[in-house]
């Protein structure tokens, strides 16, 4: 046995459990604002992820328990459930999870080796394959729990009256129709910052993110990088033309921005390694996401932005490799 002979009682499992705990405020807000259907989706995703993980480990002849219990599959599952519409049919969720665990994770060699964020790969695959289903979001207070479960379990999709445009969709459509930002925000879809009701969920993620920072599971470089990247782009255009570009606050409170800032760009495996690299990576995601939201056709650009930045990680790492103590060029 070799040094060190003593270890801090820390584990991958503890980190993953902390992440799951940090997601709880956001999930609670989700249940409160949109309904408990999300819990069913979370359960389906979790079961599918564990089954897929176990299967892949068996196929790859890897020890089962140690990886299965590390919690990483559950974190991926929860993120997928939270970024898919919460009334999506069960098979859509399961397919998404399979894409994440089987293709994005295990085909690349399992945890630690995958270059692409599994949850984001799943989202992109699903939105390309099922664009219609992926844009059916429940409106706040639109569907009771029974209806949500009915839809999740694959019941006939009579969705008039229970779905609604998301804040990002409403904004995009309004702007296409030559309305100005101010009048669009006047419609009932919007609350004080982002989508009515949804902004509370974003707030929940924000609180959970602060918890992760406090527990030192993540460092500030990533969330701040994302917020600065997205906020800066949005801010510049908003200052120049406030009637055609919504404010930074709107962008940060809408769609998956808060989830991305604290739970998605913070995936250590697929991100950059140095502190500066992390900041650049996250800022890149924020900037690209804003560009796709503003000029692209997809409802939210975060998933594509993350995958694009995943590709850049080796480059970022090479450019930002820190010098060891005493070797810095200027002190």
């Amino acid at each position: 046995m070799t040094s060190p002979h003593t270890r801090q009682p820390d584990s991958v499992q503890r980190i993953m459990i902390t992440v799951l705990v940090a997601l709880l405020p956001g999930i609670a807000a989700y249940v409160w604002q949109v309904g408990a259907g999300i819990l069913v989706n979370l359960a389906i995703a979790t079961a599918a992820a564990l089954a897929a993980e176990a299967l892949m480990l068996r196929l790859r002849k890897r020890p089962l328990w140690i990886t299965l219990s590390d919690g990483s599959a559950v974190v991926t599952a929860w993120l997928i459930a939270l970024i898919l519409p919460s009334i999506a049919p069960w098979w859509l969720t399961v397919t998404g999870v399979l894409v994440a665990i089987v293709m994005a994770k295990h085909l690349y060699g399992g945890i630690g080796q995958n270059p692409f964020n599994p949850a984001m790969a799943a989202y992109c695959a699903m939105i390309v394959a099922y664009p219609a289903l992926m844009s059916q979001w429940p409106s706040v207070d639109g569907a009771d729990f029974a209806t949500q479960v009915h839809l999740i379990l694959g019941g006939s999709r009579e969705i008039d009256g229970i779905t609604g445009a998301t804040a990002l969709d409403a904004m995009r459509t309004g702007l296409r129709n030559q309305n100005d930002v101010h009048s669009i925000l006047g419609t009932g879809v919007f609350g004080f910052a982002g989508g009515r009701g949804w902004e509370w969920i974003a707030a929940g993620y924000f609180v959970g993110g602060l918890f992760l920072l406090a527990r030192r599971v993540i460092t500030w470089h990533l969330p701040l990088g994302f917020i600065v990247g997205m906020g800066l782009m949005a801010g510049i255009f908003w200052l120049v033309a406030p009637e055609s570009f919504p404010s930074p606050l709107f962008h940060l409170a809408s769609g998956g921005a808060m989830l991305a800032a604290f739970f998605i760009v913070t995936d250590p495996v697929t991100g950059a390694s140095s502190s500066l690299g992390k900041f650049i990576f996250a800022a890149g995601v924020g900037i690209i996401a804003w560009i796709i939201r503003t000029f692209g056709v997809y409802p939210d650009g975060i998933a594509f932005a993350v995958l694009l930045m995943n590709i850049c990680v080796p480059l970022i790492n090479r450019a930002t490799q820190p010098a060891p103590v005493g070797k810095r060029k200027s002190p």
Partner: peptide
Amino acid sequence: EPEQPCIRCGSCVNVCPIELQ
């Protein structure tokens, strides 16, 4: 405990007194 795959969490970077990676 048994060795697991590196998750690139960066904890090791934060504690290295020579600021290595």
